[in-house]
Each structure stands twice: as structure tokens, then as C-alpha cells.
Design a protein around this nucleic acid. Sequence first.
DNA 1: ATATGTGCAAAGTCTTTGCTCGATA
DNA 2: TATCGAGCAAAGACTTTGCACATAT
Lengths: 144, 144
Amino acid sequence: MTRENKDILSHIERLCIEKGLKMTGQRRVIARVLSQSHDHPDVEELYRRASRLDDNISVATVYRTVRLLEEKGILEKHDFGGGRARYEVTEQGTHYHLIDVDTGKVIEFEDPEHVKLVQVMAKKLGFDLLQHRLELFARRIQEK
Amino acid sequence: MTRENKDILSHIERLCIEKGLKMTGQRRVIARVLSQSHDHPDVEELYRRASRLDDNISVATVYRTVRLLEEKGILEKHDFGGGRARYEVTEQGTHYHLIDVDTGKVIEFEDPEHVKLVQVMAKKLGFDLLQHRLELFARRIQEK
DNA sequence: ATATGTGCAAAGTCTTTGCTCGATA
DNA sequence: TATCGAGCAAAGACTTTGCACATAT
């Protein structure tokens, strides 16, 4: 990889370095792609985006990298149906997903009250909550 | 299939008949297995349980049957991680899952208030809620 | 220099499907 | 009997992995 565009580290690249990961050219590209992605791409899509920046990347590497980043807590893996895993950069603070069943688009939203609520739910069942997910499958309200 | 044990229809078999499904011996067995299962088995496990009752069943048929029953609304498909789909009989009234991360066990619970709450959430975002899922990943509280 | 990452293609999982035979309504 | 289901094995879709080579630290 050349030096151009390298002085500015992407957000994810910084996180990778903090975690002590060896930064290869491929990982830098994938990190950059992830930093610029504000949706929930699957591996195939990440591979497509990464290849646009650098065609020296194999899909196997994308698979290996997302797994690595997930283990490091940098990425989150989701299953929104459709058979392929989808990824997004871990954000601080829980957020939820509403999936538009007609378009497949995912809308994110937060609800701090709900976060407290589910902790109480778990406690009532005798558990300490580690993680949770709330997913709404819905259809846009028709306005005529 | 012989007549033995046939006079008593299982709960699921009754539902299948109501939906107008052709009841083959295999479907009857799978229906019986499902009626007796109060957990969240995957296809492999259903196949194992069905084979115990009748070894004339192929795993392909189990796949075809769970898909059919899911389409008919008799079964629900879940993804609790682990790569394979897991099934449970549809119950009236939404319920939620708490997954014990140490044992993998799934605890079901209901919360009618929460059902209303998420409908409001969706509405605020401009959507009509079709389905939703809430899953808690948690660890049993230590008492010493 | 050494440990680790990558590409490629093969293999692994889970699931679906084409075809022929068999069973249900 | 005509239609639909089942078994079997092959194919599909997504993901992982073994091996030889390349690269970061």
C-alpha cells in the first residue's frame, strides 16, 4: 500500500491499533470501509466496497477480518434474516433496530428508558443482564 | 403407519388438519414430536426425536415440514446464534426469551405491558408493528 | 527474522431442490 | 386415480480452513 491517504487514520484503524492488531494493507482498507459505512452491510457488500478502494483483497480476508473485529468488540454481528450476517460498528450505548419489512432497510433508534426496563426484567428472573436486543419488524404507515 | 396411537390426535396434528394439510405418516410423527416438545429444538434434534418414534423419516422431510408449518403460522423460527434455526410451537400472545449465556438454556417470559410499549415505539417512528423480538442474554445472579 | 496475515481453492455446515416412487384424499 | 408428499442424493448459499507465500513488527 502506498503512503497516499495514509496519514489520516480512520476511526476503526485507530481502534485496531489500540487493540494491538497487526495492520496490514487489507485491514486498513477494510477499516476505512467500515468507518465510512453507516449502514449494516453483509460480507459480500463489504468486500465490494473494499475492492473499490483496493482490488487486492479476497473475500476470505473480509470474513477473517470481520470475525476478528467482532471478537475484539469493534464490530457487531446481526441476523436480520436473509441468511447472511450483517455488521455494524459497535457504538457506545445500546440502540435498537426497526426493520422495514417491505424495503429491508434498518432504522436505528435509542431508548435509554427501555435499557433500564430490560435490566429490571432480567433481575426479576434472577439474572444479570449482559446484552439484549430488540428488533421491530414493521411496515410504514400509509398516508393518503 | 399403523393404527396404534392414532386415535388421539396431537395438538399440532389438529392444527394441521384445520389448515387443510394432507396428513402423511411422517407429518403425523413430526406433529407429535412438536406437541411434546416444550423447548426450542433445531431441525437435527427434531429429526432425532422423530426417528425415535418412526425411523422412516428423512431429514429433508423435517426441513420441508418445519418450513410448511412456519408458513402456516403453526411454528416459529428463531435464531439464537449457533448457525442453525430453532423452532417452537406458536403460542398465542407474544413472549420473550432470556438466554442463559452459561448454559445455553432459554427461559420464556411474557410481558403484555411491553407488547403495548413496542407498538407505541413503532408508531412514533411512523410504522405499524408486525412482529418484534426481545432477547436478553444474561447470567444467573450468584447467591453466596 | 519471526510470527502472523493473505489468496486460493477445497471443504464444511446448514438448507433447499430435482427426480422418481409412493401414499393420501 | 390424480395430486401431492417423501427419499435420496446432488446442488446451493454462506462461511471456514489448509497450505504456500507474503508482510508487519
